[in-house]
Amino acid sequence: MPSVPLSWYLIVAALLFSIGAYGALSRRNAIGILMGIELMLNAVNINLVAFWRYVEVEGLAGQMFAIIAITVAAAEAAVALALILAIYRTRDTVNVEEIDLLKW
C-alpha cells in the first residue's frame, strides 16, 4: 500500500468537486460554467483512479471508466463550445442571464 491514505485522495476530490460546482453555479459567463463542469469531471476521475489503486488494484475497471469519462468530457466540451459560439453569433452575448429565449 502507498504511504498516502485513500481518504486524502477522496478529500482532495471532494474539495475539487465543490469548487467546480461553485464555479458552475455562480458564473455569469457560459464558458466559465463549462470550466466549472470540467473541474467536477476531473474530481470524479481522481476518485475513480484512487479507488482502482486502493480497492480493485488487480482489475482494470477503474482506469477504463476514467478513460471513458475523459472521452465524454472531450465530446461535451466540443459540443458545448459549438453551442456557445452559435449563441454568441445570434444573440451577441455569452452571459447566461441574457440568454432567456426559452423562459416565459
Partner: peptide, 8 residues
Amino acid sequence: LGSAVGMV
C-alpha cells in the same frame, strides 16, 4: 486546489 480557487 489553489489553482481551482484561482479559477473560480
